[in-house]
């Protein structure tokens, strides 16, 4: 009797704490808003990161081919600085140093910072992908009269991307989760939203669990999308 009574009251408390974290004052809207900002930052950061990554990777490979040492150095400095310093420090530096004007949009700062950060990792992934393609492919493209850039775009990169898609997916998943660091520059993304609610209800755990479930759902959705992509790109493979 005593045991079942305590179980019932525990279940009731459990239910109430999640209820409080979600329903009163339409708190669920705060999570949705936070999630929206998280997705916005992630989305634009992925685009910026991919653009920087492709550019830096191609420049690095081309610099070796065309013997431009200075270009290799510039690319290496970028990659080393970004990979060698903590993301949160980079974010704070960019926030305080570069975007100093008062009406700074934190979402833009976030997207740019995470994009620049991600670009260094994406660059290394793509470079490895380009180098995994047999050099006969470049020669075949060039021997047909295609330029270096045309061959890169139409022949090398499509094959490289197929090889590195798992690694690239990993990087994007990491990026989505790392946007939680944006809470330090006062962006009300998902993690920050959860913390706000926790400070209102005096019960931090349920909002954090809810936030975690949101991240999990997004990441699982992305994983699914990536595996669909992988299957579509595999169509030229041996049976």
């Amino acid at each position: 009797m005593f045991l079942s009574g305590s179980l019932v009251s525990w279940a009731k408390n459990f239910y109430m704490s999640f209820y409080n974290a979600l329903v009163p004052n339409r708190r669920y809207l705060s999570y949705l808003n936070g999630l929206k900002i998280t997705l916005l930052i992630s989305f634009f950061a992925v685009i910026i990161g991919t653009l920087i990554g492709v550019l830096v990777a191609v420049l690095k490979v081309a610099a070796v081919n065309y013997k431009m040492r200075w270009l290799t150095h510039i690319c290496n400095i970028y990659v080393n600085v970004i990979r060698g310093t903590p993301l949160m420090v980079q974010l704070l530096i960019i926030y305080n140093l570069i975007f100093t004007s008062r009406n700074t949009n934190e979402i833009v700062v976030g997207a740019v910072s995470f994009g620049i950060n991600s670009g260094a990792y994406v660059a290394e992934i793509i470079r490895a992908g380009i180098e995994s393609i047999d050099k006969g492919q470049m020669e075949a493209g060039r021997s047909l009269g295609l330029s270096y850039i045309q061959t890169m775009r139409k022949i090398i990169l499509p094959q490289a991307v197929k090889n590195i898609l798992p690694a690239l997916g990993n990087e994007f998943i990491t990026l989505i989760k790392e946007t939680s660091v944006a809470s330090v520059i006062a962006v009300t993304e998902l993690t920050k939203a959860a913390q706000y609610i926790g400070s209102r209800t005096w019960d931090i755990l349920p909002p954090l669990v809810i936030a975690a479930l949101c991240y999990l759902a997004v990441v699982m959705g992305l994983s699914k999308l990536l595996s669909v992509f992988e299957r579509r790109l595999a169509k030229g493979d041996r049976n």
Binding site: E139, G141, S143, I155, K162, G236
Partner: peptide
């Protein structure tokens, strides 16, 4: 100038 290679070098994708 057409060129044919030992390893064919067709574009597999």
């Amino acid at each position: 100038m057409g060129m044919v290679f030992q390893q064919f070098n067709l574009f597999p994708h």
